[in-house]
Design a protein around this nucleic acid. Structure first.
Lengths: 156, 156
DNA sequence: AAGATTATTGCGAAATTCGTAAAAAAATGA
DNA sequence: TCATTTTTTTACGAATTTCGCAATAATCTT
């Protein structure tokens, strides 16, 4: 996989703001031909650099309750637990971490009831979970892939 | 804002898999006209139900270090801290939570050095952060908006 | 049930995407 | 450095998609 150049990053930047902007428009903005944009995007997709997706607003879908849950897993069962958790559509994010919790997940629910059901009936059924530390989301300030940035400006 | 019906959810489901699939193709899959898909998507966008975005792979962008950081903030300064954190492009997610940590953020870095710099030089500069609990991501199992689902099946 | 409102369809025009060959640029290597 | 190979970009006609909008159909209100 070739290193991304400035044009690639600019393409990602533009698509980040509108994932459905026409290639002709990107081409116009960057002063190159549509074919260039097309071939670069094809390459980026093939290399798995990005995907075209949609970002739904959980609230608007009726998912009023969001939580981050830190899990402690029994030694040796972490991977299995992570894979089981990943199967739930309510679970948006699953990662293994160093630190207090072996696994951290993010999940969305229609109601507090649904969250409680998830914790008490689903998590408890999964062999290998020793403890779950639930944090309820009170307010979301940012949720984006803003790190699509020109090179080394992550800390600005 | 009108309640989403079955067709709306199906549209979201299809777009979730490929955010750039043509409207004509969605129309064909669902057995309705292109105009219907177009008018529904226009309405969903206007209502803020979803956005067209791209999902980059942090690894492929050279962001090899990801972390979740739980923060304890001084009473009254939480909102201000959250807004300052949201300004960093390295910071992908910022939320306020009940539980151990007042704020939980997710951030991406090129290296451990960059992470350390962020914690020691940037976070420490922000008035109102009392403590930061860093968890390093070891492996990501899932990262998606899979909760685009038909109605009440979040727990399947 | 009648009228009003909203959603869907159909279709020609405009715009975009696609396929591909030629030209240009970049990389390779003697 | 220069010639050759490889990669990238451009150009452009054909196919496809999107758009605008009027007619029709469906849904909602009373």
């Amino acid at each position: 996989m070739k290193k991304l150049d400035h044009v690639d990053r600019q393409i990602l930047q533009i698509l980040h703001e509108d994932g459905r902007i026409p290639y002709t428009e990107i081409a116009h903005q960057l002063g190159v031909s549509e074919g260039t944009i097309r071939s670069r995007i094809t390459r980026l997709l093939q290399d798995g650099v990005f995907q075209f997706v949609i970002q739904p607003d959980p609230e608007k879908l009726g998912l009023h309750v969001q939580a981050i849950i830190g899990l402690t897993t029994k030694l040796g069962l972490q991977k299995e637990v992570a894979e089981k958790l990943s199967k739930f559509s309510a679970v948006r994010f699953v990662g293994a971490y160093s630190g207090k919790h072996d696994l951290i997940i993010q999940a969305c629910f229609h109601s507090n009831d649904e969250l409680i059901t998830f914790v008490n009936e689903r998590l408890s059924q999964i062999e290998g979970i020793a403890a779950a530390d639930v944090s309820l989301e009170l307010k979301q300030y940012k949720d984006t892939f803003s790190f699509v940035q020109d090179d080394e400006v992550t800390l600005q």
